[in-house]
Design a protein around this nucleic acid. Structure first.
Length: 498
RNA sequence: GAUCCACUAGCUCAGUAGGUAGAGCACCUGACUUUUAAUCAGGGUGUCGAUGGUUCGAAUCCAUCGUGGAUCACCA
């Protein structure tokens, strides 16, 4: 290994910068002293933050820590440093008379960013900072590249996303966001488990992409010589499980949609979908608001959050409004056409676009999105979606042109969608056929026919309520992040060139 | 896909009547045994995103391309 590293230094010296060259030289120096610059396991006894929290009981005793060196302040025969681990930072104090000449010289080979393990005594400095007086240390990983600026951190957005590890090292708030994300997901799982839901895993590779209106990614299975789709939603599989006798199931995992990338969209994103037998959309609305409120309460201790300077209260019950009521409220227009022509006139008067093939329901949906959606800042359920745009939802008993469906919006964004599931196999087949017709006339986001799903319904799907929530968007709200990229560890990026 | 904006040292950023580049941190050398954005003295480490063009001369002006961001389009 020593030889190969020496060789590496010799080969790459010419095309690396001064900062990296110096670190390679220190690496060679470390190896020349018979020390492994990339070490092995290290048994530590404490984390940095705990040394500070438990100072009263730890003062004067020995602790072992491991982490990354984030600051060094040399003072000749003594030096201060800060070490950072998962918990936070604590100051280290290195003294020549404590460590001895050799070890103190070796300390001189440590750079910002190096990962070390150490043993030392807990004490408080004259200035009052709780610190560890190092009695011995070892290098666990030599950093060959310099860290971003200690004061300004890493701001370049592109580098932050492409090299997220750097972002996590130097920007503590980024680390906090992802810790929150993990807590939110745990919280959702705990809530659903307490409600008796069974977590299941259904296929990510689908022979038929169903459960949503979206363009799928296509991939290929070599052995079977067949194309498969990355799933756009787990819905149709989860409902098969309800047919199979599971009464409450959920899946919290990735979906993939081959669509544009934006501040709210990433090609892969996370949803939780759940299905509850013998329930309807009203039950699921209550579950939705209770779930979101419980998650907020658990994460931040209150149902009131601040998002982009706007206070939002998750406390149930949330406002419920039909789609036409919302249109009326925010545009003053009564959307109650009896023909497509009348619907088009209304849309035109509001300057809302539609396509030739769009029926009354789709036009209403367009109008709603245009005039009402952006106003739905506080959590709001919109109900009464047209059957035309809801091919998997059960028709309303009084008005078969609308469904027992809801979507909920927060800060003008759609976060969740749910409905009483369509469990009539004959109606479902007709709805699929209508979708296939749309598909054949060029709508590549329309559903495909899923015969097996219809067959499953023919065996009997109990009345069921279902729900899907966009986890990324929920995390954005609860962590006050403006872009979906800031709640995804590795958001999708084009490969770098040049 | 469209429009606008950005890209300069490892990081954060300056840099227009066009004259081949600068600061802070980091880094290197030296001093310093309780500092904490340590301090003091000295040192600038660069394919100015890429490629063409205009010009005696381009980080700067023009064109094309790349990457990123914002807004739109698209998107259950």
């Amino acid at each position: 290994m020593t030889e190969s590293h020496d060789q590496e230094v010799a080969i790459s010296t010419e095309d690396i910068n001064e900062l990296m060259r110096v670190r390679r030289e220190k690496l060679a120096d470390i190896e020349a002293r018979g020390i492994e610059p990339f070490g092995r396991k290290y048994d530590f006894t404490h984390h940095a933050a705990h040394v500070i929290e438990q100072f009263e009981s730890l003062e004067g005793s020995t602790v072992r820590l491991a982490g990354r060196i984030m600051a060094i302040r040399g003072h000749g025969k003594a030096s201060f440093a800060h070490i950072m681990d998962m918990s936070g930072k604590v100051q280290l104090y290195f003294r020549k008379d404590v460590l001895g000449d050799t070890a103190y010289e070796e300390f001189g080979l440590i750079d910002l960013g190096d990962i070390i393990g150490l043993e030392g005594l807990v004490f408080r400095t004259n200035r009052g900072e709780i610190s560890v007086k190092v009695t011995s240390f070892q290098i666990l990983a030599k950093a060959l590249r310099p860290l971003p600026d200690k004061w300004h951190g890493l701001k370049d957005i592109e580098t932050r996303y492409r090299q997220r590890y750097l972002d996590l090292i130097v920007n503590p708030e980024v680390r906090d966001t992802f810790i929150s994300r993990s807590k939110i997901i745990q919280s959702i799982r705990r809530y659903l488990e307490n409600q008796g839901f069974l977590e299941v895993e259904t296929p990510m590779l689908h022979p038929i992409a169903g459960g949503a209106a979206a363009r799928p990614f296509i991939t290929h299975h070599n052995a079977l010589d067949m194309n498969l789709y990355m799933r756009i939603a787990p819905e149709l599989y989860l409902k098969r499980l309800i047919v199979g006798g599971f009464e409450k199931v959920y899946e919290l995992n990735r979906c993939f949609r081959n669509e544009g990338i934006s501040i709210k969209h990433n090609p892969e994103f996370t949803t939780v979908e759940l299905y509850q037998a013998y329930a309807d959309y009203q039950d699921i609305m209550r579950l939705s608001e209770e779930l979101c409120a419980a998650v907020a309460q658990e994460l931040i201790g209150t149902t009131k959050i601040t998002y982009q300077g706007q206070e939002i209260d998750f406390k149930p019950p949330w406002t419920r409004m039909t789609m036409t009521e919302a249109v009326k409220k925010y545009s003053g227009v009564d959307f109650n056409p009896s023909t497509v022509e009348e619907a088009r006139v209304i849309a035109d008067s509001l300057d809302v676009k539609y396509e030739k093939k769009d029926g009354i329901g789709k036009i209403l949906s367009n109008v709603f999105e245009e005039v009402a959606e952006k106003h739905l800042i506080q959590p709001t359920f919109i109900i009464g979606h047209p059957t035309e745009i809801s091919p998997l939802a059960k028709r309303n008993k009084e008005n078969p042109e609308i469904t027992d469906r809801f979507e909920f919006f927060i800060y003008g964004r759609e976060l969740g969608n749910g409905f009483s599931e369509l469990n009539d196999p004959i109606d479902q087949k007709q709805r699929f056929l209508a979708q296939v017709e749309d598909r054949n006339s060029g709508d590549d986001e329309a559903h495909m026919m899923d015969e097996d799903f219809v067959t499953a319904l023919e065996y009997g799907l109990p009345p069921t309520g279902g729900l899907g929530i966009g986890i990324d968007r929920l995390v954005m709200l609860l962590t006050d992040n403006y872009s979906i990229r800031d709640v995804l560890l590795f958001p999708h990026m084009r490969p770098q060139r040049d």
